[in-house]
Amino acid sequence: MTIDGGQRAAALAAEPLRPAGAQPGFFRGTVQSLRDIAAHRELLGLLVRRELKARYKDSVLGFFWTLARPLAMLLVYYVAIGKFLGAERVPGRETGIPDFAIFVFTGLTAWQLFSEIISTGTSSIVGNAGLIKKVYLPREVFPLSAVGAALVNFTVQLGILVAATAVLGRFPTGSRWLLLPLALAVLVVYSTALAVLLSAINVYLRDVQYLVEILIMILFWASPIVYSWGLVESHLSPMLAQLYLANPMTQVVLAFQRVFWVSGTDEPTPPDLAGTLGVTLVISIVLLWLAQRVFARLQSNFAQEL
C-alpha cells in the first residue's frame, strides 16, 4: 500500500459511522427520511423517466399511446353508452345524465390516477429487487417514482378532458376551478400513503398485490363514477349516505365533477364539499406520515425477503 493510499484509508477510518437504514423515532426519523429523499431527488427523476420508457419499450408510436387510450375511452362512452344505450339525458326525456361522456370521463380521470398509483406503487419494491439488494438508497423513492409516472399520464388525460369540454361548449369557468387543487391534493396524498404502506407489506406478503386489484375494482363501483350522487342520496338513508361520503375517493370524484361537469351544475351535491375535502386532506397527511414510519420499520429486512 502506498503512503497516499494509507493516508486515505486512515482518513476514511476516522470518519464517523452513519447507519445505512432509516433513523428511529417518529419525528427525528421522519426528518432524516425527508433529507435522504431530497438528497436522491435526481435518482427519483431518473426512476420516473425509466418507468415511463419501460411502459412503451419497443413501441413504434411510443408516448402516443398515452393519448390514444383516454381518447378511445372517451369516444366509447360518448357513442356506445351515452347515445346507443341511452345513458345521456336528451331534450324530451327526464331520465339519464346530461353530457354523460364528460360526466364519466371526469370521474375516470381522477380514478385512473388513484388506481395507477396504488397498483404500480404496491409492486414497486418487489419490482426493483435487484437494485435494492445491491446498494443502499432510500427505498421510498420506488413508490414515489410510481406516483411521478402516474402524474405524467394524469396530466395527459386531464388535458384531453379540458379539450373535450371546450369542443362541446361546456368549458368550466369561474370559482369552480378552486376545488381542483384541493381535490388533487387529497387524491395524491391519500393514494401515496396507501402506495407507500402497501409496497412495504407486499414484500412480506406477496398476495397483497392481488388483493389490491380486487379492492380497486370494488372501490370503483363504490364511487360515483358511472352513476350520480343524486342516485346515491335517493337510495340511502342519511346515515349511510354520510358513510358513503367518508370515502376520500368519493369526495375527490364529486369535486372533479363539480369542476368539469358544467351540465351538472344544478345536480345535487353534498353540502360543504370543500370543507369536507379540507378535513380529509389533513387526515391524509397524517396517514402518509404514519405510512412512511411503518415503511421505515419494515424496510430493514427488504433485501433478505427479496
Rank of each mutant, 00 (worst) to 15 (best):
G127T: 12
L71T: 11
R69Q: 15
R50Q: 15
K134L: 14
F302D: 10
P138N: 10
P248A: 00
F295W: 06
L85F: 13
L254V: 00
I160L: 14
I201K: 05
L254Y: 00
E213Q: 15
N301M: 13
T173K: 06
A54F: 12
V212K: 00
G121H: 02
A303H: 02
F220W: 03
T122N: 10
L144I: 08
V48F: 08
L61V: 10
Y56K: 07
I160Q: 08
W111H: 07
R93C: 03
V90N: 01
G275K: 00
Y56E: 04
A14I: 02
F171C: 09
A13S: 09
A39L: 12
L219A: 14
L306S: 09
G29K: 00
V60C: 02
A13W: 06
L281P: 05
Y227T: 03
S300L: 12
F27L: 14
V188Q: 04
A22W: 05
A195E: 10
R18I: 15
L12P: 08
V167T: 07
A296L: 05
E15V: 14
Q7E: 13
P181G: 04
Q209S: 15
D4T: 13
T66L: 13
Y77L: 07
E116D: 15
L12S: 10
E305V: 15
E94S: 12
V90D: 01
T265N: 10
L178F: 11
L215D: 04
V282C: 04
L182I: 11
G174A: 02
R206S: 14
T2E: 08
G62H: 01
I201N: 05
A11C: 05
F302R: 06
A22Q: 09
V31Y: 08
S223G: 09
L12H: 09
L71S: 13
L12R: 12
F260C: 06
R55T: 13
A72N: 02
P238D: 02
R297P: 04
S145R: 04
D58G: 09
F154P: 07
V259H: 00
L240G: 01
L273R: 00
R293T: 05
V203N: 06
A185K: 01
V186Q: 03
G96K: 01
L287S: 11
A80C: 10
V226P: 07
G121I: 09
A110P: 06
L198T: 06
H235W: 10
G62Q: 04
L137G: 09
F142E: 11
A14V: 03
V188D: 05
